[in-house]
Design a protein around this nucleic acid. Structure first.
Lengths: 257, 257
DNA sequence: CGCTTTCTTGACTGGATTCAAATATGGTGG
DNA sequence: CCACCATATTTGAATCCAGTCAAGAAAGCG
């Protein structure tokens, strides 16, 4: 599977920009969030939409990446695979997340669509000009980069010091918080349904665990009453507070202070 | 030790700005790297110097951090400690590295001086104004944040997927590359002396390992002829290329593409 | 409905941790 | 300058958590 992914079809469907930035679902969270009407008009002219099917490679580590994009819908992973096949996912990309780095021509990681993904994208040069000439894009990009940096460091604590059980719970807590935020809530409810965007293998690659260990932890957590499994990808969290406690992080609730 | 660190004296020695920005050792690498003479003049008026002795806490996770700083000399760690004492270091701060985040009043991590540290610092408000009004600072800060983000994600691969041996070697390779860059070289020589800024405990906290495992790996690597130990903190690397191979990362040489 | 893929479970192994003790190091005062 | 002490580091032995290998169960898809 890991090997065969190389043969993945680079399925791609070009789309005309059918929605205006004003109606864009990620309007208030993406790199354009701080833009005013005039700035949006400029983006409107420069942007294009593209859709990749699940499994497609959006970028490959070390290879040129000549568009910078925001995810509008769908989910992708950012990962690196070592020569012997060990893979570590370093980011889960969801709507409003940004792909690529201004000022760098090559991708540092593999980026793969794990579901159908639609991007709002700009040619590298065009976007770099936008960053230079549009202060609201530059500041927003900076904020997003710093947020990602904090998230990445927080995840390092999970990878470096947590047990398999704590790792799984930490990921569930993170996914729940991101889902809640996408729905405009401050925090998840006490009880709710959580959709897992990744397979067990995808989760394992994110957690620095094997599939088997990840699966065993799911079973254990279910037996311990932390959630019910409606399906392999759908959990019913019983008591979110208990989950947070199990995560073991001396966490402030994920709220940015 | 971990507990007693709480009693650490917040030793601090105020210094007048004795060096001009033009002569500053981190002039071309720090957040001010892109500034022109006029901009430096503004920084010159706003900056102040402060020195902390080894062991001092420069910041505490969750607590206010009301200065933003650049490290001029010395070394500090950025870490988080879980309630039960497990600690993970998420960053090693060396000369020209930046401490703090514009737009956030509280530190996300503990920051501790591991040697005597001298900072060039600005009051939060002052610096935030500088970022807003000085494009060269904003762009440099962005570049630094993105570099740190890549470094943090690269480290996640090490924490999540590497063996104890590979972790130790990866850290040595990183330290060697940073040292070489500080000396203006592109890459380390084949053979050279490497100073370890951290104790075995400090290294272990960075690697997500115990002191014992870290120590055992040092012994094994020494026996395997990868380096000689001139002292506990001083290694003589025999063949850097071999070290890079042992690190196992499909690494491009750490050069930013 | 049958096939493939994904997920779960079991048994065993092994690398890193834990607990414990010995040794080395570095700083300090005599 | 050296002896001494506290601290840091190394080493040893036993344990345990997660990995590996293998097989069975469930889910998804044509």
């Amino acid at each position: 599977m890991q090997i065969n992914a190389l043969d993945t079809v680079f399925a791609m469907v070009q789309l005309k920009p059918v929605i205006g930035c004003g109606n864009c679902p990620i309007r208030h969270n993406a790199v354009c969030a701080e833009c005013d009407a005039d700035e949006l008009a400029i983006l409107e002219r420069a942007k294009s939409y593209v859709t990749f099917s699940a499994g497609a490679r959006l970028a490959e580590a070390g290879e040129p990446l000549d568009h910078l994009s925001s995810i509008i819908t769908g989910c992708a992973t950012m990962s690196r695979t070592l020569e012997d096949g060990r893979r570590q996912t370093v980011g889960l990309l969801l709507p409003s997340d940004f792909i690529g780095r201004p000022g760098r021509a090559n991708s540092a990681y593999d980026i793969e669509a794990v579901s159908e993904v639609t991007l709002c994208r700009f040619e590298r040069r065009t976007f770099e000009d936008l960053v230079r000439n549009t202060p609201h894009i530059a500041t927003r990009l900076m904020t997003m980069a710093l947020d990602e940096l904090d998230a990445s460091r927080d995840w390092a604590v999970v990878l470096g010091r947590m047990t398999a059980r704590e790792k799984v719970v930490s990921l569930l807590v993170n996914l729940a918080r991101r889902a809640a935020r996408r729905e405009g809530k401050t925090a998840p409810e006490k009880s709710f349904t959580l959709h897992l965007p990744l397979s067990r293998e995808g989760l394992a690659d994110y957690l620095g665990l094997t599939i088997e260990t990840t699966s065993r932890q799911f079973t254990a957590l279910r037996k311990d009453g932390l959630f019910e499994m409606l399906s392999n990808r759908e959990l019913r969290i019983v008591d979110f507070d208990r989950l947070v406690i199990e995560a073991g992080e001396d966490d402030d609730g994920g709220v940015i202070v």
